[in-house]
């Protein structure tokens, strides 16, 4: 009954763990793709097929390809792997791990709906999302376009200085 939810949720968590702990960048990217795909599965099971599709296309597709390209250009090798391992000694985990555990505990403690037995979810199709997006939230869409434009210009600018300087 709960095989599929358990599988996809567990896969998400395992993938995320591997991203955080893996010393090799390309492997981490592949784990991140796995995480995102299983997260897309979760989204689909929550009745958000549109969001799931976007997660696959934009996140696991476009953004991850960006990561792969950059890692290719960085030309990482064995020294980098060793350095990563050096940086990931158990001692380095103490502070961040503590902070993360505290934050996680607080989040779980602070979510009262976790004890809410009535957890039914309703599917929302792309039509509703579209109507909402270009109705109520049209101003926000404009703002998001500004943001993307700013991101584009910034990335272009930084990349240009990269090319022109020797």
């Amino acid at each position: 009954m709960y095989v599929l939810p358990l599988l996809s949720g567990g896969l998400t968590l395992v993938g995320a763990m591997m991203v955080v702990t893996c010393p090799v960048a390309v492997h981490a990217v592949l784990y991140l793709v796995v995480t995102l795909l299983s997260l897309a599965m979760v989204l689909a099971m929550l009745g958000a097929q549109f969001a799931a599709a976007l997660e696959i296309i934009i996140y696991a597709g476009a953004i991850m390809v960006l990561f792969v390209f950059v890692i290719m250009m960085l030309n990482l090798g064995q020294p980098d792997r060793d350095r990563e391992k050096e940086w990931l000694r158990p001692r380095a985990w103490i502070g961040p791990g503590l902070l993360a555990v505290v934050a996680c505990g607080e989040l779980l403690y602070g979510l009262p709906t976790l004890s809410d037995p009535d957890g039914a979810v309703f599917p929302i199709d792309a039509r509703d999302v579209g109507l909402s997006l270009f109705g109520t939230y049209v101003l926000m869409v404009e703002l998001a376009s500004f943001l993307l434009l700013a991101g584009l210009v910034t990335a272009f600018h930084i990349g240009r200085t990269l090319r022109e300087r020797p």
């Binding site: 009954m1 709960y2 095989v3 599929l4 939810p5 996809s8 949720g9 998400t12 968590l13 979760v42 099971m45 929550l46 009745g47 996680c104 989040l107 779980l108 979510l111 709906t113 976790l114 809410d116 957890g119 039914a120 979810v121």
Partner: peptide
């Protein structure tokens, strides 16, 4: 299968 809401919150946290 539907994903339970509570489980989604747990997963997100």
């Amino acid at each position: 299968t539907a994903f339970p809401f509570n489980a989604a919150l747990l997963l997100a946290a």
